[in-house]
């Protein structure tokens, strides 16, 4: 066991999670593969969504994987940073929209 919680080399070992539970692992990776196939959304659009979500959930493995993935699918830096801003806007907005709840409560308990 390394002394660090995160190791970049672990990304390539993602598939190994099936070792401890093959049936669920297989179901997950089959599903995962299908999700990222071109459908109503292109592979590039899905990679950019994944990149934005990766930032929102702050997963270093996902950021690594979908930075490469987005570039491979033909996205450029501008599109990628816009995707990150989408994540930031939603995260910021999610905090701020609760300001309404705070205001409601504050109004309820003040004169």
């Amino acid at each position: 066991m390394s002394k660090h919680y995160y190791d970049a080399d672990d990304l390539a070992k993602f598939g190994q999670i099936s070792e401890f539970q093959p049936k669920l692992g297989k179901k997950f990776f089959d599903y995962y593969g299908s999700v990222f196939e071109a459908g109503a959304l292109s592979e590039r659009e899905k990679a950019l969504i994944a990149l934005a979500v990766a930032h929102a959930v702050q997963c270093p493995y996902c950021i690594d994987a979908y930075t490469s993935g987005s570039l491979e699918k033909g996205a450029d830096e501008e599109q990628m940073m816009e995707a990150v801003h989408v994540a930031a806007a939603i995260k910021g907005g999610a905090a701020l929209v609760h300001g309404v709840q705070m205001m409601n409560k504050a109004k309820d308990m003040t004169m």
């Binding site: 292109s42 592979e43 590039r44 570039l71 491979e72 699918k73 033909g74």
Partner: peptide, 19 residues
């Protein structure tokens, strides 16, 4: 001709062509 400007592989020619 599309070739990646960096250390990564090209993805599906068909989807890149559409874009």
């Amino acid at each position: 001709v599309y070739n990646p400007s960096g250390a990564f592989l090209p993805s599906s020619q068909e989807s890149m062509e559409l874009e």
